[in-house]
Computed example of a mutant assay.
Amino acid sequence: MKRINLLFTGQELDENILEELPIQFYVSVLPFIKTELLSNKHLIEQLNFIIESECQVIVTSNIAAKWITKYATNIPNWKIACMTGKTKDVFVTNEWKNLIVLTDQKSELLAENIEKVFSKSQKVYFITGESHLNIIPLYLSKKGFDIETIITYNTKEVEQNMEVNYDGIIFLSPSAVKSFFRQHKISIEIPLFAIGETTAAALKKIVFNPIITSPKPTQKILFHTIQQFFK
């Protein structure tokens, strides 16, 4: 049975993934980015100020969702639009599920639905990280929404050496794509696996390798997709 070497470039591999993989799959975890939550007093005070109001909030990152639920003094009366997958899971785990009014796995579709559901007469808070994409705020600004962006974490590149020829490389974010290809060149034949359309789009801008995108933005489905590819 041929061994299949995979490189996982994300920060955190979900629990049980390795246990569920067939024995021929070997996964090396080398994070090419790290995130740092911001914890300055003014930022946390700003969060808890808007928690006291009925706000419209957009969250496209599970890291931002973790920041919100970590520093919030109580569960607010918000309308939340967020990405499916781990971002939604953070809110569900912290019993914020009832605040979610919209979800999607693509930023463009989420922005279009927000336009239909959110009110233009009320400010919209986009709670995100330093390296966020501007797809949603730019779209809504053009449609007449008042958007305030709140930066809750920084993303830094991590230097990693590669000593193995991998049969496939796994990416969870555009930031990891940028960091990886700033450091390394790879054979054009190596398949690249993206957890979602945004990450796949970042890869397509840089390389001509085969790019396989998970049909849903979860690690479980991504790894199922990888197994199907190598059958």
Rank of each mutant, 00 (worst) to 15 (best):
M1N: 10
G10E: 04
E15K: 15
I17Y: 04
E19K: 12
E20L: 14
F25I: 14
Y26V: 09
V29I: 15
L30R: 14
L30W: 03
L37Q: 04
L38T: 12
N40M: 02
I44L: 15
N48Q: 00
N48M: 07
S53W: 02
T60G: 03
S61A: 11
S61W: 14
N62V: 05
K66R: 15
I68F: 01
T69S: 11
T69E: 04
Y71A: 00
W78K: 06
T87K: 02
V90H: 15
F91E: 12
E95A: 13
E95R: 02
W96H: 10
V101H: 14
V101L: 09
L102N: 06
K106R: 15
K106V: 11
S107T: 02
L109F: 09
L110D: 05
A111F: 08
E112S: 13
N113R: 14
K116P: 05
V117E: 06
K123W: 00
Y125Q: 07
N134I: 08
N134P: 00
P137K: 12
Y139C: 06
Y139P: 05
F145E: 07
D146H: 11
D146R: 08
T149L: 03
T149G: 02
T155D: 03
M162E: 13
M162T: 13
N165W: 10
N165K: 15
G168K: 00
I169G: 04
I170G: 03
F171Y: 04
P174Y: 04
K178F: 01
Q183N: 12
Q183H: 03
Q183V: 05
H184F: 10
H184V: 11
S187Q: 11
E189S: 11
P191F: 12
F193M: 10
G196R: 11
E197V: 10
A200G: 09
L203T: 01
L203S: 02
K204D: 04
V207R: 12
P210R: 11
P217W: 08
P217E: 04
T225N: 12
